[in-house]
């Protein structure tokens, strides 16, 4: 990670705000998110439902655009400004330089087309190649993601594959134009743990061998620890902490991160009497609390928390470790009960 400064930046997001007009009012799904992704890096965006992690990812892909959405901010990706891009410019980038896979591989593939045809369709949307060439490429891709008998499976319908195989097929499709960025939105949540382990291994291999950068959206801290280089923790539309994997796991700065790490169960450790829990529940994004969004659930809140803390570096020894909490580093180390790496 010491070389991080010299590696070029692939994706740079600043002040991203996304809100949706609904019947109940305006939902502020993403509230000033900034992210930076270096080439070859795996960035995990962690959060619970409603934290804005998926909306952030979908917005990069232009998939939240619509009459009820208002989007502002900037997102630079390989020389393209994604937020302001025309639909046609964005279409040329997505599926090509930047791909996305989703949580439920069954519903994410069209049930009426064969898997190979769906890959061929993507290749031919971006490259002027013959159907035969594209099909050959589809077989190679299925082979590369570890699908046995790719020459036969290329003609299978999605429902004829198991859940794990479907997600592999989704990954093959995402890789079909050799993108530099893969956005994976909860890619293993719908799958069994042994299949999950295989898919994480596959993603790690692709990251190492193909120089594929990955933004991994997940709620599962265990998965993050297996694969991420850097971590951004989101809560109620904002990033509350961002740093390297070790910084966030062993020196967490935000009380929400403490709660998240604390409520984990570990099968390799003696079990505690009680699972540490975060009291209360996430706020409504229709009327988020004033100031720090975590304040109503935070046992350490004080009067300053009525205003919004900036996402700043607060530790002199870790210039790339950001957090949104007013407590001093000393207070934090005193009060947190987790993350000392013991």
């Amino acid at each position: 990670m010491s070389e991080a400064g010299r590696v070029p930046t692939l994706l740079e997001v600043h002040d991203l705000e996304v809100s949706f007009n609904t019947e109940d009012g305006v939902v502020r799904a993403v509230d000033g998110v900034g992210l930076e992704l270096k080439s070859d890096e795996v960035l995990a965006v962690v959060g619970e439902s409603g934290s804005g992690k998926s909306v952030t990812a979908l917005t990069m892909m232009g998939l939240t655009r619509g009459p009820n959405a208002s989007i502002s901010g900037t997102a630079h990706f390989e020389g393209t400004e994604l937020i302001g891009a025309s639909d046609e410019e964005l279409r040329r980038v997505r599926g090509n330089r930047m791909s996305m896979i989703f949580q439920d591989p069954m519903s994410s593939l069209n049930p009426v087309y064969r898997v190979g045809a769906q890959i061929v369709e993507q290749i031919r949307a971006h490259r002027d190649v013959s159907a035969t060439e594209a099909r050959q490429r589809a077989v190679e891709l299925l082979d590369a993601v570890g699908i046995p008998d790719p020459g036969i499976r290329v003609d299978a319908y999605p429902h004829e594959l198991s859940g794990g195989m479907r997600q592999r097929a989704m990954i093959a499709m995402a890789l079909s134009l050799d993108p530099s960025l893969l956005i994976a939105d909860e890619p293993t949540t719908a799958l069994d743990v042994t299949i999950q382990a295989q898919l994480i291994e596959l993603l790690r291999k692709l990251n190492e061998e193909r120089d594929l950068s990955i933004v991994l959206i997940t709620h599962d801290i265990g998965v993050v620890a297996e694969i991420a280089d850097r971590v951004a923790v989101m809560y109620a539309g904002r990033i509350v902490e961002q740093g390297t994997l070790d910084e966030v796991f062993y020196d967490p700065q935000h009380p929400y991160t403490w709660g998240l790490l604390g409520s984990l169960t570990r099968i390799d450790r003696p079990r505690p009497d009680r699972l540490p829990q975060i009291p209360g529940m996430p706020p409504s994004l229709l009327e988020p609390p004033v100031g720090c969004h975590f304040r109503p659930r935070c046992p350490h809140a004080f009067d300053r928390c009525q205003s919004v803390p900036d996402l700043n570096t607060r530790l002199p020894e870790a210039p790339a470790h950001f957090d949104r909490c007013f407590l001093s580093p000393e207070q934090k180390r005193e009060r947190r009960e987790v993350g000392d790496g013991t």
Binding site: V193, T194, Q196, A197, I200, D220, I221, G222, V223, V224, A225, E226, L245, D246, F249, Y250, L261, L264, R266, I267, D268, G341
Partner: peptide
């Protein structure tokens, strides 16, 4: 054994 070894460990150093 297979099931347990697949459970992700939320501990980067240990991983």
């Amino acid at each position: 054994q297979q099931l347990l070894s697949a459970v992700p460990i939320p501990d980067p150093r240990e991983n």
